[in-house]
């Protein structure tokens, strides 16, 4: 069974249709890249998968491990293993990263009927993960993303990904706002989390991210549809010839 299956998805935002019948099948262990110009609907897709309010699904379905994802509350999706690494992670003043991660992890465990993790055990776990990602301890004590640099915010997203051990990770424009060094660190973090059980969907405008996170499948999106799919060589092709050729195809 596929891990994530998007079938003929149609989505509107305030009367305007953004996705016009998008389909996508992601199997465990795979890394899919979704590329496309601005406004092609890439971020909309990631938001709808995660359940962000404000989008109206007018047709199609999303199955996650065979179950209807659209019927689930956003936090329920998270507990089942859908993780969205935000393009713009928000700042939450006054809430320490450490406290936030603990609350979120326990909420997920509780929802899955697992036992909550105690403070000391959690502390140990976070420290280990943080260390492996080169995240300094003091970052955990600061408010969630408050005063973080672009690179720190993205690393915080990857830290959460590592901690929550999701089944599907959607990385929305992970490279935006990162310089090449920060990008490499973030990509290393993501690569370390690749596993035969886990799938990743990497949404990006540029090919350069895919030099670091090498995809198994590349999809080109234009005007709310997948217009072409192929192997990693498709990304290189795009780099050379641009998106224009696909805009006519859409």
């Amino acid at each position: 069974m596929s891990l994530l299956e998007v079938k003929d998805l149609q989505v509107r935002v305030e009367e305007r249709e953004i996705l016009h019948g998008l389909s996508l099948t992601v199997n465990p262990g795979q890394v899919h890249a979704i590329m496309g110009p601005n406004g092609s609907g890439k971020s909309t897709l990631s938001h709808v998968i995660a359940g962000k309010p404000g989008y109206e699904v007018t047709g199609g379905q999303i199955l996650f491990k065979g179950e209807d994802l659209l019927e689930m509350e956003p936090n329920e999706r998270a507990a089942r293993g859908v993780f969205l690494a935000f393009q713009y992670p928000v700042e939450i003043p006054g809430v320490t990263t450490w406290n936030f991660l603990h609350a979120a992890l326990n909420a997920q465990r509780k929802a899955r009927g697992e036992e909550e993790i105690s403070s000391p055990a959690f502390l140990k776990k976070v420290r280990e993960v943080a260390k492996s990602l080169n995240i300094p301890q003091d970052m955990l004590k600061r408010g969630v993303n408050v005063g973080f640099s672009g690179g720190e915010k993205k690393r915080n997203e990857i830290l959460q990904m590592a901690l929550f051990e999701p089944a599907v990770c959607i990385l929305d424009e992970m490279d935006s706002g990162l310089d090449i060094d920060a990008l490499r660190i973030a990509a290393d973090g993501v690569n370390a989390l690749r596993s035969p059980e886990r799938a990743m969907v990497v949404i990006t405008h540029y090919q350069r991210l895919l030099n670091y996170i090498v995809p198994d499948v590349v999809h080109v999106m234009s005007k709310g549809r997948v217009v072409k799919s192929g192997g990693k060589e498709l990304a290189l092709e795009l780099e050379e010839s641009g998106y224009a050729q696909f805009e006519d195809a859409a």
């Binding site: 956003p74 928000v90 936030f100 909420a107 929550f164």
Partner: peptide, 29 residues
């Protein structure tokens, strides 16, 4: 902010937990 609430909920918190967390952050000082 609805964006902040959604971020928390995407990480698995319920609506009430998310509001509680944000409010506690708001009054932390």
């Amino acid at each position: 902010s609805e964006d902040v609430l959604f971020y928390c909920i995407q990480r698995g918190l319920s609506q009430e937990e998310a509001v509680g967390l944000v409010v506690n952050g708001f009054v932390k000082d």
